[in-house]
């Protein structure tokens, strides 16, 4: 009986969904809704289940929210810009091995300098050195990959997987060789977690992410043109090699920042950016940049909220994100976006 009763409602429901679906809304409306959702998520996260010593609980939560916001923006923007300059919808910095590279650099640093030296070194200085190394290596490695002529996406995907495996293999080799106590210092860095973020690192990261977001915003029209592909972009007067090098540099800094803050999240960027394309009817970075940033914030903070309230910390957020993102990745592959 219940099934039969549900049937007449179905057309009504789809009609309502069609008209009310964000896809039909203008980008400005989508952006406004996302901003409200982000605000709501932040407020809920800060206030829900608030008890005990507020002077202790509130600052802790504030650090967590700030870290999530930064990571959301860093991952969202880096993935969006990366997909734009490589003119594809599947490759992301993580899939191309950017964050494995970062972890490899981390491991190599601990191995070379020693964990105790590193642990006592000033956080911001250490972070700056890591980011610098990351930029240097990814600059050398990925610049020639993406600034050359047309290359097949399949080849790039393979290269990414091979590089990712290489860096992970290199990291685990060094980990086997190093002192077990040093390995424990490292281990904390390898799983995405918002529960232990250094506040000093947060300020440095905020400055870096803010500066890059501003630079991306200034580049928004050029990014639109770059998405048309190399030949068209060159025809329209974009200095392709220079701009793509810049954008890849920005991407690697963003990846370094987010990985340093919370560890690697492979499919999060893909998830957020794919959703962003769906929600934003107009293909224009003027809308895509803020929408992707906010969408990431809603997903992360909302996800963490659900995780803490519903699952009672039973699982790490990254596992849920990777699960959903992995399914989406397979779906995109099967749907034939990989051309």
């Amino acid at each position: 009986m219940a099934d039969r009763a549900a049937v007449p409602q179905a057309p009504e429901l789809t009609a309502r969904r069609r008209s009310g679906l964000p896809r039909a809304a203008s980008p400005a409306v989508v952006l406004a809704m996302l901003a409200i959702a982000t605000l709501a998520a932040v407020v809920l996260f800060m206030t829900l289940d608030l008890r005990g010593n507020l002077g202790y609980v509130l600052p802790r939560r504030a650090v967590k929210v700030a870290a999530m916001l930064l990571v959301a923006v860093a991952v969202g923007l880096s993935t969006l810009m990366f997909q734009t300059v490589t003119a594809n919808r599947i490759l992301t910095p993580s899939i191309m091995g950017f964050d494995s590279l970062y972890l490899f650099i981390q491991t190599a640093l601990v191995f070379a300098v020693g964990g105790s030296t590193l642990a006592t070194a000033p956080v911001v200085g250490k972070f700056a050195a890591e980011v610098l190394l990351m930029v240097l290596f990814s600059g050398l490695l990925y610049r020639w990959l993406f600034t050359g002529g047309a290359r097949s996406l399949h080849l790039m995907l393979l290269v990414g997987i091979v590089l990712g495996t290489l860096f992970r293999g290199g990291s685990s080799l060094l980990q086997r060789l190093m002192d077990p106590s040093e390995y424990i210092i490292l281990q904390d860095l390898f799983f995405a977690s918002f529960n232990q973020v250094d506040p000093a690192l947060l300020w440095a990261s905020a400055a870096v992410v803010g500066a890059i977001a501003a630079a991306a915003w200034r580049l928004r029209h050029t990014l639109d043109v770059l998405a048309l592909g190399r030949d068209t972009a060159v025809n329209l007067g974009v200095d392709h090699r220079r701009v793509v090098s810049w954008v890849l540099l920005m991407c690697s800094v963003l990846v370094a920042v987010s990985t340093a803050l919370v560890g690697p999240v492979t499919f999060f960027g893909l998830l957020v950016v794919s959703l962003g394309y769906q929600l934003c009817r107009e293909y224009s970075h003027r809308w895509l940049l803020p929408i992707v940033g906010l969408l990431g914030a809603v997903a992360l903070i909302g996800g963490q909220l659900v995780l803490e309230q519903v699952f009672g910390f039973d699982t790490a957020l990254s596992i849920i994100i990777e699960f959903a993102g992995g399914i989406l990745f397979l779906f995109l592959l099967l749907k034939g976006s990989l051309k």
């Binding site: 592909g229 030949d231 068209t232 025809n235 329209l236 007067g237």
Partner: peptide, 18 residues
């Protein structure tokens, strides 16, 4: 590149949009 783009336009054979 920008100055050239105001002087000459080129269209290749294959153009696909992502």
């Amino acid at each position: 590149s920008r100055e050239l783009a105001r002087t000459m336009a080129i269209l290749r054979q294959e153009n696909h949009l992502t």
